[in-house]
């Protein structure tokens, strides 16, 4: 298998959406997610010499991002921890050993698994979008994910409405094919 090469000039255009989606599903804050993605690119740049070429560029960047997310949680948890020790765990002595999480956990809550599947699905969609021509992916994201109206997209990208619908049609067809192969 040929060794993978790094091309930092294309990182932001190629991987920023994938990394952002990966991050926001784990930190739930747009601004923090953007900062973490930014930090990931910078850390990648600094550690380019460590890239062995065994993994793809994206996999390598994701591995850096994962460490950034862990560091972020360590930072906020060190502050949270101080608050938690002051919390009242309840008055019942029979509940000795019960952690707060057990007390508040809802046994009927099955959303965690669903959420994980939806997160994975989101990542699969973005992987498929990466395979589309840049213009198609851009228009599709603006229309479908960001929810911009047709007029705004046409103005921003300087295209006609009929052009937009042709692009959307091609993007949807390609995306459906890709998801049928990789997800459904």
């Amino acid at each position: 298998m040929p060794k993978q090469q790094l091309d930092p000039n294309k990182w932001v255009s190629k991987y920023s959406d994938y990394l952002f989606n990966y991050t926001i599903s784990r930190v739930s804050d747009r601004a923090i997610a953007q900062d973490l993605v930014s930090e990931t690119f910078l850390a990648g740049l600094k550690s380019m010499a460590n890239f062995k070429g065994d993994a793809s560029e994206r996999t390598w960047l994701v591995s850096i991002l994962k460490r950034k997310i862990i560091d972020y949680y360590r930072r906020i948890n060190s502050n949270k921890g101080k608050a938690e020790v002051r919390m009242n765990y309840g008055t019942s002595s029979e509940a000795e050993g019960d952690w707060l999480e057990e007390r508040i956990a809802d046994p009927f809550d099955k959303t965690a698994e669903d959420k994980m599947e939806n997160t994975e699905l989101g990542e699969a969609i973005l992987s498929c979008l990466d395979q589309l021509p840049q213009k198609q992916a851009e228009v599709f994201k603006m229309k479908t994910i960001l929810g911009y109206d047709t007029e705004t997209i046409c103005k921003e990208l300087d295209i006609t409405a009929s052009n937009l619908w042709v692009i959307i049609h091609r993007a949807r067809a390609a995306l459906t094919d890709c998801l049928e192969k990789n997800w459904f």
Binding site: S16, N21, T119, I125, L126, L179
Partner: peptide, 13 residues
């Protein structure tokens, strides 16, 4: 595809 897009938690910049 529309249902999947709504179900999935996809975000982009």
């Amino acid at each position: 595809l529309t249902d999947v897009m709504q179900k999935a938690e996809v975000n982009c910049l």
